[in-house]
């Protein structure tokens, strides 16, 4: 019997070596170790053994079984790993093939930049206010200290609907509407479309966008205006951004300023991009004129405030290096897809 057991171990070990797939391995396990397998058959003969031999043979049989089992387990594990590796190898794909298209759209570049500007101002406690684009002469000019004969009207070629109704030339009209409706403190911006009768070219458009800003409270200073615009530009263009103020004139602010952005290209030294000025004109601003405050029922002796108007096209074009304003209104998919 001992010989038989050793023979089984020998045969099993030998046959295991030649096995290369999991199916054959299972067949082999059943043949040797199964209920009707060779080892079981031998163990059935145990009854015929003497009580002295039985434990010895039993031990031997168990040892043979466990050795075969162990060998099968090791080999099975190896084969499983090989099979898994082979499967992975067989499933290799070209990962450089393009992905399946997912249709995701894009915001228009003007609105993408507007959203950033709005975020900055919301963070500084400004509300966003809308106003009509078709506007009365009163809100667009008269209330802004520009009576009919005012020469400043010449600088804003106006589209007229009637003698008394215009397409607003500036978002400053919203200043007046806001001051009539709200009491100080006021912090608002008002983005929107404005209109001037300029023919279309690379830098002009009869329709463009402005972002008006207005702050009214006790103790608002020109220094606050400077600080607010400086912060906006640093947030939009990076912390190294520098601006400068230049005295200017607007009928609805006093003092008034134009705000220039230091040329990114030359750092203020002057180059072809900034027409040798070192700075690029960015926006107009100033302290709200006492006459304007008074007309809106706000006492200029108690309150002061500042206002500014940013050209959205200008900052958008500067932001993305767009050199022709017409592209913004042509809306070619190949253009829109770039932002």
């Amino acid at each position: 019997m001992k010989e038989q057991l050793e023979k089984i171990l020998q045969n099993a070990t030998k046959e295991l070596e030649g096995i290369s797939d999991l199916k054959a391995m299972e067949d082999l396990r059943i043949r040797f170790l199964g209920k009707k397998g060779e080892l079981t058959a031998i163990l059935k003969q145990m009854g015929g053994l003497s009580p002295e031999e039985r434990p010895v043979m039993g031990q031997l049989a168990n040892s043979v079984r466990s050795r075969i089992e162990q060998t099968i387990a090791e080999k099975t594990e190896r084969l499983r790993k090989e099979a898994a590796a082979a499967k992975l190898a067989a499933e290799k794909i070209d990962v450089t093939l393009p992905g399946k298209e997912m249709p995701i759209g894009r915001a228009h570049p003007l609105n993408a930049v507007l959203a950033e500007v709005e975020e900055v101002f919301l963070g500084m406690g400004f509300d966003i206010v809308d106003g009509p684009e078709v506007e009365t002469d009163h809100y667009c000019f008269e209330a802004l200290n520009m009576p009919k004969s005012h020469p400043a009207r010449d600088t804003q070629d106006t589209f007229y609907i009637s003698d008394n109704v215009v397409l607003r030339t500036q978002t400053s009209s919203v200043q007046i509407r806001t001051m009539e409706q709200r009491k100080p403190p006021i912090r608002i911006i008002s983005p929107g479309r404005v209109y001037r009768s300029d023919a279309v070219d690379a830098t002009h458009s009869p329709l463009f966008h402005q972002i008006e800003g207005l702050v009214i409270d006790k103790g608002i200073t020109l220094a606050d205006l400077y600080g607010t615009l400086d912060m906006l530009m640093k947030k939009l263009y990076g912390k190294d951004t520098q601006i400068r103020l230049r005295p200017h004139h607007f009928p609805y602010t006093e003092p008034s300023a134009e705000v220039d952005l230091m040329c990114f290209n030359c750092g203020g030294k002057g180059c072809s991009m900034c027409k040798n000025e070192g700075y690029v004109e960015l926006l107009g601003a100033g302290m709200v004129h006492p006459k304007v405050l008074e007309r809106c029922g706000i006492d200029p002796e108690v309150y002061s405030g500042f206002a500014f108007g940013i050209g959205l096209e200008r900052i958008t074009m500067g932001r993305y290096g767009i050199n022709d304003m017409r592209l913004l209104y042509e809306n070619d998919m190949r253009f829109l897809g770039q932002f």
């Binding site: 403190p185 400086d230 400068r244």
Partner: peptide, 23 residues
């Protein structure tokens, strides 16, 4: 301001707190 120099004016933050909110 013009002859003191606009750019010699300090840059300050508006006093007071305010909450900006979208409608």
């Amino acid at each position: 301001a013009r002859f003191h120099g606009y750019n010699n004016i300090p840059k300050t933050i508006i006093r007071g707190i305010a909450e900006g909110e979208l409608t």
